[in-house]
Simulated scan of single mutants.
Amino acid sequence: MTVKRMDNIGIVVEDLGETIAFFRELGLELEGRSTIDGEWAGRVTGLDDQRVEIAMMRTPDGHGRLELSRFLTPPTVADHRDAPVNALGYLRVMFAVDDLDETLGRLRNRGAQLVGEVVQYQDVYRLCYIRGPEGLLIGLAQELT
């Protein structure tokens, strides 16, 4: 049996409302928001007394999703948000955008900061990394045609 699809990427945040607003500005749609708790949830994650507020964000094409989670209990135990680009483990999510400059301008109004600079890769892409809400590393790519 093979994988059918990648369903979502999970990101743990402290301020769920601000993070939802940021990704809405990027163009994602809020599918739903809920609190998850109970014995079954702890069995899945290995965290006993788990209570988590989640929001599911969907890309406009309907193929990609981000699951944003804010842990109420237990408290978060590690913080990888300031890790550099060459850190081990999951690092960033990359979004294809229509207009990199316009998107970057809108996200800067929500506090995004450019990590390096906007660069052009051959005649194929314009790319950049930004730090979004809570220091999350996000890639933006505009395909050149």
Rank of each mutant, 00 (worst) to 15 (best):
residue 59 T to I: 03
residue 132 G to K: 00
residue 70 R to S: 09
residue 106 R to Q: 14
residue 135 G to T: 11
residue 11 I to D: 09
residue 139 G to M: 03
residue 139 G to F: 01
residue 19 T to H: 05
residue 16 L to E: 15
residue 95 F to D: 14
residue 73 T to R: 08
residue 76 T to Y: 02
residue 27 G to M: 05
residue 17 G to Y: 05
residue 10 G to C: 13
residue 71 F to D: 12
residue 100 L to R: 00
residue 1 M to S: 15
residue 119 V to K: 09
residue 52 V to K: 01
residue 1 M to R: 09
residue 68 L to H: 03
residue 113 Q to T: 15
residue 54 I to L: 08
residue 42 G to K: 00
residue 86 N to V: 07
residue 100 L to S: 02
residue 78 A to W: 02
residue 103 T to F: 02
residue 20 I to T: 07
residue 141 A to R: 07
residue 116 G to D: 15
residue 29 E to R: 15
residue 123 D to F: 00
residue 132 G to M: 01
residue 134 E to Y: 08
residue 113 Q to E: 15
residue 102 E to L: 07
residue 113 Q to A: 14
residue 31 E to I: 01
residue 55 A to L: 07
residue 40 W to Y: 10
residue 8 N to P: 06
residue 73 T to S: 14
residue 93 V to K: 02
residue 98 D to E: 15
residue 92 R to T: 13
residue 80 H to S: 08
residue 31 E to W: 00
residue 33 R to D: 13
residue 137 L to N: 02
residue 85 V to H: 10
residue 43 R to W: 04
residue 20 I to Y: 02
residue 17 G to N: 13
residue 75 P to I: 06
residue 24 R to Q: 15
residue 123 D to V: 00
residue 121 Y to G: 07
residue 32 G to T: 09
residue 17 G to S: 12
residue 136 L to G: 08
residue 82 D to L: 04
residue 141 A to S: 13
residue 91 L to T: 05
residue 65 R to L: 09
residue 134 E to S: 05
residue 89 G to I: 04
residue 28 L to S: 08
residue 50 Q to I: 14
residue 26 L to K: 04
residue 144 L to A: 10
residue 11 I to N: 05
residue 21 A to M: 07
residue 68 L to Y: 03
residue 18 E to D: 13
residue 6 M to N: 09
residue 20 I to Q: 10
residue 71 F to L: 14
residue 140 L to P: 08
residue 34 S to E: 14
residue 101 D to A: 13
residue 52 V to S: 01
residue 94 M to K: 11
residue 30 L to T: 13
residue 7 D to R: 08
residue 23 F to R: 08
residue 91 L to R: 11
residue 59 T to H: 01
residue 63 H to N: 13
residue 133 P to D: 07
residue 110 R to W: 07
residue 128 C to T: 13
residue 101 D to C: 06
residue 68 L to F: 03
residue 71 F to S: 13
residue 119 V to W: 02
residue 128 C to Y: 02
residue 129 Y to H: 13
residue 98 D to K: 04
residue 84 P to Y: 03
residue 137 L to K: 01
residue 120 Q to S: 14
residue 102 E to V: 04
residue 60 P to W: 08
residue 34 S to Y: 05
residue 6 M to S: 09
residue 33 R to F: 04
residue 54 I to C: 11
residue 110 R to Q: 15
residue 92 R to W: 11
